Amino acid sequence: MITVYGASDDLIEIDGDISEEFGYHNEDKGDLLAFSDGTVLRIVFTDAAIWRITTVARGSAELTIEQAPEDDESNYTDRATLIGAVWVVHGLALAR
Results as ranks from 00 to 15, higher is better:
Ile14Cys: 06
Asp15Pro: 03
Asp17Ile: 15
Ser19Gly: 12
Glu20Ser: 15
Glu20Gly: 11
Phe22Pro: 05
Gly23Trp: 01
Gly23Lys: 06
His25Leu: 15
His25Asp: 15
Glu27Met: 15
Lys29Asn: 13
Lys29Gly: 12
Gly30Cys: 10
Asp31Gly: 07
Asp31Cys: 02
Phe35Asn: 00
Ser36His: 09
Ser36Ile: 08
Ser36Val: 00
Val40Ser: 06
Ile43Gly: 01
Val44Phe: 07
Thr46Trp: 10
Asp47Met: 15
Ala48Thr: 10
Ala49Ser: 10
Ile50Pro: 01
Trp51Asp: 03
Arg52Gly: 09
Ile53Lys: 05
Ile53Leu: 01
Thr54Gln: 12
Thr55Arg: 08
Thr55Leu: 14
Ala57Met: 12
Arg58Gly: 11
Ala61Met: 08
Ala61Asp: 04
Glu62Asn: 14
Leu63Arg: 00
Leu63Thr: 07
Ile65Met: 13
Ile65Gln: 12
Glu66Thr: 14
Glu66Lys: 10
Gln67Ile: 11
Ala68Ile: 01
Ala68Asn: 08
Glu70Gly: 10
Glu70Cys: 10
Asp71Cys: 02
Glu73His: 13
Glu73Met: 08
Ser74Thr: 14
Ser74Ile: 08
Tyr76Pro: 00
Thr77Asp: 03
Asp78Lys: 01
Arg79Gly: 05
Ala80Tyr: 03
Ala80Asn: 00
Leu82Cys: 01
Leu82Arg: 00
Leu82Gln: 02
Gly84Cys: 02
Gly84Asp: 07
Ala85Phe: 04
Ala85Asn: 04
Ala85Tyr: 04
Val86Cys: 07
